[in-house]
């Protein structure tokens, strides 16, 4: 719903080729990955990376498919993190080769469920996912009793109220929600059902930044900045 706001930004923003500032969008990514104050893990990683290349980064939230369309159209400069393979459907986007992070798509439950068998472990359970998360939509077995929700709050609320045995979500964001809402008895099931590397994308008009940004990302990983960020933001969630 911030689309009009985005348009307004676009009208008064500088041309892209000035490249002093980059606007990226993220989907419905929750803390600890993204925050409104841009203090999430990915916010900081990318901010650091863009700093390394002398560009100010601003991140906004555009949900779901709109984020991809907006980025593809160049309304925004890119996406903060997505899986590989988007360029097939969104050809104007260029993936930055250095991954941002590995996202673990895990099951959360109040029960102890061994998820080492993969997706089929879901069949006997009622499962809930966020609508639009393709990774789940494409891989959950058909026999599974799946409930679709729109938000992560709904997802965890469902689980909290025992309205679903399992919910599938991204690990770190899930843990963030667990901590935020104080859900008790909701645990992460290991191993993750799926993993995906998450890459940042830029509109092709910023193609020149792609290698720079990739390099910057490497650098921050190498120089410990990345780890420091991990230790500060993500690691405490596992405790």
């Amino acid at each position: 719903m911030k689309f009009p706001y985005i348009l307004l930004i676009m009208l008064f923003s500088s041309p892209v080729f000035a490249e002093n500032k980059i606007f990226l969008s993220h989907g419905a990514t929750q803390p600890p990955m993204h925050t409104e104050q841009l203090t999430g893990f990915i916010d900081l990683v990318l901010t650091k990376a863009y700093e390394r290349i002398g560009i100010e980064l601003d991140i906004t939230k555009i949900e779901n498919e709109n984020a991809l369309i907006s980025a593809n159209k160049g309304v925004v400069d890119g996406l903060t993190q997505r899986i590989e393979g988007l360029t097939k459907h969104y050809p104007n986007l260029i993936r930055v080769p250095e991954k941002i992070i590995d996202w673990q798509f895990v099951a959360f439950s109040k029960q102890d469920i061994n998820t080492s068998e993969g997706w089929n472990v879901l069949i006997p359970y009622t499962t809930a996912i966020i609508t639009g998360w393709k990774i789940f939509e494409f891989n959950i077995p058909e026999k599974t009793n799946v409930t679709h929700v729109k938000t992560a709050e709904q997802l965890f609320n469902l689980l909290d109220k025992n309205r679903s045995d399992i919910i599938l979500y991204e690990r770190w964001q899930g843990l963030g929600l667990i901590k935020k809402h104080g859900y008790i008895n909701i645990k992460v099931m290991n191993p993750p059902i799926a993993k995906r590397e998450m890459f940042t994308y830029l509109h092709k008009k910023h193609a020149s930044l792609v290698p720079k940004l990739s390099k910057a990302l490497k650098e921050i990983k190498n120089d410990g900045t990345y780890q420091a960020l991990y230790n500060r933001i993500l690691a405490p969630l596992e405790k």
Binding site: T147, K150, E153, N157
Partner: peptide, 8 residues
């Protein structure tokens, strides 16, 4: 209500 989707 089941899904706690207040918005919807």
């Amino acid at each position: 209500l089941w899904l706690a989707d207040k918005k919807e």
